[in-house]
């Protein structure tokens, strides 16, 4: 083998870079986030299997409708009316940003820009 003095260290650096997640986590898979569910009113505006993957789309649509079209209409879910509002509807039940929103967002490194305009609740 030629130039092993350069190639072997190069290969070692490459393998260390590729396996970086192994060294970084050092064998600890960590805790899975646990969101705090509302204690009362178990009914969400959408069923769980829809709200969980699509809540960001819905909030984005609400934002556009309310701010750009001034369409603040209500949504009826099983006879009850809900306002299109993050703070008045969503956060009425999910009271804590830290214990609900941030749990998964921090885990998955998602930084939604809701709180650029909305005032985050003081916790």
């Amino acid at each position: 083998m030629y130039d092993s003095g350069k190639i072997i260290p190069g290969l070692i650096i490459f393998v260390l870079l590729i396996t970086f997640p192994i060294w970084y986590n050092h064998g600890d898979a960590g805790e899975v986030p646990k969101t705090e569910m509302p204690k009362y009113n178990r009914l969400c505006v959408l069923p769980l299997e829809e709200i969980r993957p699509n809540h960001m789309k819905m909030l984005n649509q609400w934002r556009d409708e309310v701010l750009r079209d001034e369409d603040r209409s209500f949504i009826a879910v099983e006879g009850k009316m809900y306002q299109k509002s993050l703070q008045n509807t969503c956060m009425e039940c999910h009271v804590s940003k830290k214990k609900f929103c941030d749990e998964c967002h921090t885990y998955a490194a998602v930084t939604p820009y809701c709180w650029d305009c909305h005032l985050a609740p003081v916790e």
């Binding site: 986590n25 050092h26 064998g27 899975v32 998955a108 998602v110």
Partner: peptide, 25 residues
């Protein structure tokens, strides 16, 4: 196609793979 794409399960699987504790939640 976001149905059943649960980022928490996916991240747990990915972290599990690199810590040799893979779990499909």
């Amino acid at each position: 196609l976001r149905t059943d794409v649960d980022i928490v399960s996916i991240k747990r699987l990915a972290v599990g793979l690199v810590t040799f504790q893979p779990v499909i939640l």
